[in-house]
């Protein structure tokens, strides 16, 4: 009886997954097209939220440069567990057409390993919807997120916070 009661929380969490959208590339236009009435994603329960403290998974659309990397890891660190990662586009795989540039991070899957990955340049909204339904299955079965076991993001975040303590900047008062 207790297991059936606890299963209710898993069912509730899987049927309304909320996400944080970090946009930094051309693939984020297809996410905004999913909000429209033609490829409606609210009928499955997805919703974008403004703050990472209320979200279930983070969506990485497009490429990650060296200036953006500490901000992305800080956003992922502020999410409560269980937290998953969803990556779109060939730029998040190996850098895409910029794979030998000096300011693009090319080994993103080694730093923050994704749970579901959708390919394309950019993929059509129907393909992204297939990937999102896979994500729903993963949340329903309560698998552990891949970024908790593997990945080097914890050490990199510690180094960046030592270099720049103002990274987690909150609003503050100045003067009187």
């Amino acid at each position: 009886m207790l297991t059936k009661f606890l299963d209710f929380f898993g069912w509730a969490r899987a049927n309304s997954p909320w996400m944080v959208h970090y946009c930094s590339g051309c693939c984020s236009l297809e996410i905004l097209a999913l909000m429209g009435p033609r490829f409606d994603w609210e009928r499955y329960g997805f919703m974008p939220v403004p703050s990472p403290r209320q979200a279930d998974f983070i969506v990485i659309t497009g490429l990650i440069s060296r200036k953006v990397l500490p901000v992305l890891l800080m956003t992922y660190d502020q999410m409560p567990k269980p937290r998953y990662v969803f990556a779109i586009g060939s730029c998040a795989f190996d850098g895409g057409p910029y794979y030998d540039s000096t300011s693009v991070v090319t080994n993103v899957p080694e730093i923050l390993p994704p749970d579901v990955f959708v390919a394309g340049c950019p993929p059509t909204p129907e393909a992204i919807l297939e990937g999102l339904l896979e994500m729903k299955k993963i949340i329903r079965e309560k698998r552990e997120a891949r970024a908790e076991r593997e990945g080097t993001w914890k050490e990199i975040l510690k180094q960046e916070l030592e270099k720049n303590p103002l990274l987690s900047q909150q609003p503050f008062f100045v003067g009187g």
């Binding site: 190996d94 080694e110 394309g120 993929p123 059509t124 393909a127 297939e130 896979e134």
Partner: peptide, 16 residues
Amino acid sequence: DTAPPATAQDKPNDLW
């Protein structure tokens, strides 16, 4: 056709 979405068990990065 489009490529199917890959999950963590397929490990597409390590093979490439």
